[in-house]
Amino acid sequence: MKSSPRKRVLALLASATALAAATATMPSSPATARAASDPEVLARHLLAPLSLAVSKYDVSFVSQNFGGPVLRVEPGHRTREVTGGAGEVGGLSRRGRTLTYVLTGEGTPEKAVAFVMTYKDGHSMKLGNLGRAETNRNPDGDVEYGFTDLDPTCADQIDQETFGPPVHNGAIESHPYASAKIGGTTYVADAAANLVWEVSSDGNVKVLSILPPLPGEIDAGVAEEYGLPDCTIGETVLNEPVPTDVEVGPDGMLYVTTLAGEFPGAGAVFSIDPSDGTTEPVVGGLFAATGLAIAKNGDIYVAMLFPNTILRFPAGSDIPEEFATINQPAALEIANGHLYATTNVLAGLGFKQRQVPWAPRTLPHRDGPAGKLVRWTL
């Protein structure tokens, strides 16, 4: 597929037609565990709240990725603006009094624009230049994505204006989407670069792990959505992994969710050893996985935005249980005995199209942003 639509996470999540096709082909439904009760609503009218951080004092920080400021949500549901930037702000994580976030600007095919930032005591500072690292190195530039063993006569029938080239390598592009910290080191899941960056306290940026391509099968729904010829149905595509969240588990490992484009069941959770970058699959069969949280006992919670579902994988198991059905969940965090989530994250965004040209264009026009911050007691 064209590199820009596929790697821009928000554009990937926006297609209502892909949603309809995907939900019809989702893997069999997970088992239902103890049903979650209706959550407590902490904040409303949020603008694409795709990232979240929570302090030990029940203070939440919520991003508004389509151009709004980061909000601080205090007990009693009081909110105030914290910080923003000239670009997309997201990827929140919190350690002590320091809030870490990522800032993505509009790049070019030859230059990526993205930074890791810190915010403390009312001041923002640049920590690491991810865009420069991606531009200079393009770590997945040698990785091949796309169809495997597709007959050349079939490949010739693909409309590359709609789908992109049948086979392509990783392009120069950075769209950091989530961050996590261990000590003085910041780890960033970069959805466009298809990797996890390691950023030291002095701003040095290096690659920790390049996530592997994830296989998906073309079905009739995907073929129709992208105008693909019938000869592609049943063929395998190696998807760009598109990492969307990174969290630190109780075992000291990093855990990462992957979106894997529009292929139902191609998404996964990986574990990454922060000492050497060793990367292993943990669970698979996911679709539109945009958020991740790890409980102290090792239970894994995954938000799947399109299926409107939060899954729970009991510690040591790759068999999901349905924790909650809720509209458009995205970011997840566990803190203070609660599971926090942002929901309804793409609702009511039609009026933002002129301000954010790459924002979803298939969403209904509504009266304003309708994202929410909610939480359940675990």
Rank of each mutant, 00 (worst) to 15 (best):
K181Q: 14
P212D: 09
G96T: 13
A359Q: 14
W358F: 15
R137N: 05
G368P: 03
I233W: 09
H77R: 15
D299V: 02
P281K: 07
H338K: 01
V242W: 00
M304N: 02
Y226G: 00
P314A: 06
Y101E: 02
V246E: 05
Q160A: 09
L211K: 10
G249W: 03
L286S: 01
A189E: 05
G67L: 11
F66G: 14
A266Y: 00
G105N: 06
S93R: 08
L130H: 09
K206D: 11
V356M: 09
F147G: 01
I334L: 14
R97D: 11
V188C: 11
G371E: 07
I334R: 09
L292E: 08
S29C: 04
T232N: 06
Y57D: 13
M1N: 10
G183K: 10
L238V: 02
P30T: 14
R6S: 05
A260F: 00
R312D: 08
T83P: 00
T325Q: 12
G267V: 00
G105D: 03
N239W: 13
S124E: 03
G216F: 08
D142Q: 12
D245W: 00
E40R: 15
A223N: 09
A171R: 01
T17S: 11
P250Q: 10
I310P: 02
L46G: 13
N129S: 11
G252I: 07
T362M: 14
P369W: 05
L46R: 04
N65R: 12
